[in-house]
Computed example of a mutant assay.
Amino acid sequence: MKILLLGEYSNFHNTLKKGLEKLNYSVVLAGRKDGFKSLPVDVSFEPQLLAKTPLKYLRYLLIKLFKFDIAAFETSYYFFRNKHKLKGFDYVQLINEYPIKSTPYFDKILLKFIFKNNNKIYVSACGNDVIYLNYILNADLPHHILTPYIKNPKLKEHFKYSLAYLNTAHKKLHNFVLENAEAYIPGDMDYEMAYKNHPKAKPLIPFPINIDLLAYKPVKIKDKVKIFHGINRINYHKKGNDFFCSALNFIKEKYPNQVDIVEVENIPYKDYISLYNESHILLDQVYAYDQGYNALEAMAKGKVVFTGVSEEFLDHYKIKKRIAINTTPNLQEIIDNLSYLIENPKEIESISKNARDYIEEIHDYKKVAQQYIDCWNT
């Protein structure tokens, strides 16, 4: 059985590939490298000439003047140059409806080749997509990733990448993918809720985590509590980094001799991982109902993560122990939770162990890979 994973998002498809290979399947990962994270792929569509030469300045100028990224042409060129490597697969999974990240118009053309020259095509529901964004805008939710924009439309520029999925071009791409794909597979509770009644939705399959690669070390706090906050400037408001920054400013003053705080911004994935390895607490996001990739990988290492641990999530997996800190857009609540952990370091040690146990039970990349095989074969 040959499998093509098309597109990458926060190490999801890299980890799924390793899980499938552990089960002795042949897998190719093709796509771009998820921006500054620079994740590895087997077949790359990542722009080179327009990203790493002086031509990048022309690219930036044209983006500013015409709102069009000419790197889409280079991405499409790399796709067609490698198209012989992208056909004849039994199963293809798209990272989402916009997996190649050229433009919606170009992606539709490129995906026609994928649909025509491969067998069954599935779509992972994660990241931005038309169904998810329409759901959160119309559902009666206490909060979601667009909440800051809804409350303050002046923040529109910070949400332009998400809001773009509501335009006509993306809707046309969505309709094309929806018509031709076998099914959509939600990757966490945020998308399970959005796709719950959709006729082409499969049951949730959790994100795979490489528990063999991410070693767990029992937490023993002997001195200061170490807190890590990684900022992705593009998603600053979308993730709620502003709440974390404000909370940390308060914590620095309240516990000057009890905490070490590390904050970094827009660094490659490998550097990001190495920097948070020594931390006890990781601040992830405030608007989610489940955990994304950064949170899950940190939990695998035994970090206490501030992220989405909603009632819907707890009910779905029947979780009774505290595996992370449920975080909502409530500054005082974040400060109170941080303060409690700093004053009760034994609680950090307990949550750390629970987090690792949860990852091993639910997110083991080999178990998850088998769930995908079973889903694709159904």
Rank of each mutant, 00 (worst) to 15 (best):
A295T: 02
D69L: 00
K67A: 14
F80K: 10
V177P: 02
H316V: 07
K56D: 10
G292N: 07
K52P: 14
D90Y: 05
I273W: 03
D190H: 04
D69W: 00
V123N: 06
N232S: 13
K156C: 09
C245M: 14
V43I: 15
N24D: 14
D212F: 07
E349S: 06
I100M: 07
K22Q: 11
G292P: 03
L178V: 15
K238M: 14
S124M: 12
Q93L: 15
L282S: 02
H144T: 02
K172I: 13
A300M: 00
Y9A: 04
L133C: 06
H84F: 15
Y317T: 03
V309W: 02
E278H: 11
F66I: 12
F66A: 10
K18A: 13
Y60I: 15
I221A: 01
L275Q: 08
M1W: 05
H170N: 11
I348A: 01
G302M: 01
L163A: 04
L141E: 03
F207L: 13
K202T: 12
V368T: 00
G88P: 00
I95Y: 03
V286F: 03
K171W: 09
D34Y: 11
H143Q: 14
A125W: 06
Y340Q: 10
P203M: 05
A300P: 03
L338K: 07
L214E: 01
Y135R: 05
D290V: 03
V368E: 04
Q285R: 01
A181L: 08
A247K: 03
L214F: 02
Y60T: 15
V43T: 10
L141N: 03
G7C: 05
I209E: 01
L137Y: 06
I209P: 01
N175P: 13
P104Q: 02
K172T: 11
D357Y: 04
K108F: 05
E179F: 12
H170A: 06
I109C: 07
N277V: 04
K33A: 12
E265G: 10
N117R: 04
K196Y: 12
C126L: 14
A71F: 07
K154E: 14
H280T: 08
I373C: 05
E157F: 14
E8L: 02
H174L: 08
Y236W: 07
D315E: 13
E97P: 11
Q48F: 15
I211N: 00
F66G: 10
K172Q: 15
L16P: 02
G7P: 02
I95E: 07
K220E: 08
L166M: 08
G292D: 08
Y77Q: 12
D336C: 08
I319V: 08
Y25D: 01
I348T: 00
K37V: 13
I121Y: 01
H237Q: 12
Q371P: 08
E253D: 14
F115M: 06
K303N: 04
I70Y: 06
L137I: 08
K226I: 08
V219C: 00
M1F: 10
